[in-house]
């Protein structure tokens, strides 16, 4: 396995890269103009964070790769994002549910990362946290509004939760990379953040009149890179084709 620090930085950067690209797919086709712009803002925030994480990853790796090289010249098996963020947008409710489930983890994780023993990581976390705090505020309101809305919006949100909840567990799995980093005080043990996440989910979903699925089955394989879902390849094909067809193209 490669350097745990490099792995960790790729996980952070790939989460925001893949989710940022997914969210950007709404640009121009969101249900209302206000949501369209809000989603574009979120996507841009996430891509901005990606630049910081992956540039640092490239620096740590020391092979001359920058954020662009890592984003556009790696194939599926080198991506380290959790499976949740590569899931397709579905309807607007499903996109919002995916975003909420991720934002809630993201905020808790970045909050802990602010006290990382690595100053660069702490600085990126601090900058990102301001953006993510707003993301979570917005998706919390939307999940509650749609969950506790009309019969149709409620059903769509419950379907989204049922579909996406099995992807929550992976964000809190701890493996050897996590163990190595938490031993050095660089990053928290993800499992330690689960109780506060569950508390938030229970609170929000009870306001949203949604039922959290009973099964704690969790799809895994994204953050370890062992087995991504089939959706990631399609997304990368679209995201990377230009750099692959015209290497080093700029404008």
């Amino acid at each position: 396995m490669s350097d745990p620090l490099f792995e960790f930085l790729c996980r952070m950067g790939d989460n925001t890269l893949v989710l940022g690209h997914r969210v950007s797919e709404w640009c121009g086709v969101a249900p209302v103009l206000e949501e369209d712009i809000a989603l574009a803002n979120t996507a841009l925030d996430l891509i901005g964070q990606t630049t910081l994480w992956l540039n640092l990853a490239g620096e740590v790796e020391g092979k001359g790769r920058n954020a662009d090289a890592l984003a556009f010249r790696r194939d599926i098996w080198d991506f380290r994002n959790v499976l949740l963020v590569e899931q397709p947008n579905g309807d607007f409710g499903q996109t919002m549910m995916r975003q909420f489930l991720f934002d809630a983890w993201h905020k808790a994780y970045l909050t802990a990362l602010q006290s990382s023993s690595n100053a660069q990581i702490a600085a990126i976390a601090e900058k990102s946290l301001k953006e993510v705090t707003y993301h979570l505020e917005r998706t919390t309101d939307t999940v509650i509004g749609l969950g506790d809305g009309t019969d149709e919006s409620h059903d769509r949100m419950q379907n989204a939760l049922d579909r996406l909840y099995p992807y929550v567990g992976e964000m809190f799995t701890s493996d050897t990379v996590d163990a190595a980093l938490s031993a050095e005080g660089i990053a928290p043990d993800p499992a330690s953040l689960r109780p506060q996440y569950d508390t938030l989910l229970r609170d929000v979903f009870s306001q949203a009149t949604l039922t959290i699925p009973a099964s704690d089955f969790a799809h895994k394989g994204g953050k370890s890179g062992q087995r991504h879902s089939e959706h990631l390849g399609h997304m990368l094909a679209q995201m990377q084709w230009l750099q692959r067809a015209y290497p080093d193209a700029i404008w």
Partner: peptide
């Protein structure tokens, strides 16, 4: 409240 959020974004 959502108007304020939308205003922030727009």
């Amino acid at each position: 409240q959502s108007a304020i959020k939308n205003a922030r974004d727009v």
